[in-house]
């Protein structure tokens, strides 16, 4: 591991200033991703700024009727928070579908947004990777790409963003609050992560030195009809091959509002608002769901080992929407959501 210095920040301004005054500094939350990246020599910051003493661990109601999640609240505290469980159960479910209890106890909300891809090649410095070393090439294209993207890919990179939490946040249209050298600003969740294009080394639209301070959840939580469905190679403690955050607002059997976000399929949580809009006014039937699934996956393509994801994603969307409509736990759901 590279030698590095370490400091604790106790105020947001100090953290931002500290970051700006170092060349290769990194913020560190729970460290569950950053430490691995450092051990594997993928990232080599020379200065770490510990965030856990920042006063950003609270989860509280905001004046507009929404909920504000502190960036330093842990994934576990967020998932089990009574307000989150009651008003945003989709988010709870998504967080609890991720990682393991130990990891969720350490992982912070800010860190979860910032976690990097799990692409095998990205983690192995013996292989070329544009995300790790711009211009070196993408080993996953033409390589082993079972866990890779099928939507929004580029010739430079086909990595996915691995988060579960972020898929629910995308569906719920959260807003990311950040603080940087030029002050505070907010970023719509849909604009936070980016597609790889020809700059896959840039994961998101955070500007240099900016710190995530919190997440705002809008008042609407879809707490009546929702489902987070995660498909993976074992029942728990594995990243999603495909995941779906589905949220519906129903009037009788008619869809009034719908949100569908996909995980495991793209460099960012994948949404298509046209498809969601088209669902409005439709009956909540398998037929409707299938149409939506087909539309959502239009333009999807596999790269060999991940070809199956196109079909899997379609079926997962249909199932998630069905589960969101019916809101009852059958034996399948018990298996698929057995994580906590």
């Amino acid at each position: 591991m590279n030698p590095f210095t370490y400091s604790h920040a106790t105020a947001v301004d100090d953290a931002v200033r500290d970051k700006a005054s170092h060349h290769d500094a990194a913020y560190i939350g729970g460290g569950t991703n950053l430490l691995d990246l450092m051990k594997e020599n993928v990232e080599r910051p020379t200065h770490l700024i510990g965030l856990n003493r920042l006063p950003l661990t609270k989860i509280q109601n905001d004046p507009e009727g929404g909920l504000r999640l502190g960036a330093l609240a842990t994934n576990a505290d967020t998932a089990w928070h009574p307000e989150v469980e009651k008003r945003y159960p989709l988010l709870s479910q998504a967080i609890l579908a991720g990682a393991s209890p130990q990891l969720r106890n350490m992982a912070t909300n800010g860190g979860n947004l910032m976690q990097r891809t799990r692409c095998y090649y990205f983690y192995d410095t013996a292989t070329p990777c544009n995300k790790r070393e711009p211009g070196s090439g993408c080993s996953a294209i033409g390589g082993y790409n079972r866990i890779h993207a099928i939507l929004g890919t580029s010739q430079s990179c086909i990595a996915t963003h691995p988060s579960d939490m972020c898929i629910a946040l995308a569906a719920l249209e959260a807003v990311v609050r950040v603080s940087g050298p030029n002050g505070e600003r907010t970023i719509e969740f849909a604009d936070f992560h980016r597609l790889p294009g020809n700059a896959p080394h840039i994961d998101n639209t955070l500007r240099p030195g900016e710190l995530i301070t919190g997440l705002d959840l809008p008042a609407k939580g879809f707490e009546k009809n929702y489902s987070y469905l995660k498909l993976r190679d074992r029942t728990s403690y594995a990243f999603a091959l495909v995941s779906v955050a589905a949220a519906l607002e129903l009037e009788g059997n008619t869809i009034k509002d719908a949100r569908i976000a996909l995980g495991g399929v793209a460099h960012k949580p994948w949404r298509d608002t046209d498809v969601e809009d088209a669902l409005k006014g439709q009956p909540a039937t398998a037929d409707t769901f299938r149409k939506a699934a087909t539309q959502l996956l239009q333009g999807a393509r596999g790269f060999g080992s991940n070809d199956f994801k196109v079909e899997l994603a379609k079926r997962a969307i249909v199932r998630a929407l069905k589960q969101a409509t019916e809101m009852k736990q059958g034996p399948t759901e018990a298996f698929l959501n057995s994580n906590p």
Binding site: Y120, Y123, T127, Y144, R234, S236, Y237, F239
Partner: peptide, 25 residues
């Protein structure tokens, strides 16, 4: 253990990607 023959190298060489059953399995 999955090998990428381009590199002649096992690629899922860690506990996160080399899957063995967890309690839920």
């Amino acid at each position: 253990t999955i090998m990428d023959h381009k590199f002649g190298r096992y690629m899922n060489h860690n506990y996160a990607e080399y899957h063995i059953p967890v309690n839920a399995d």
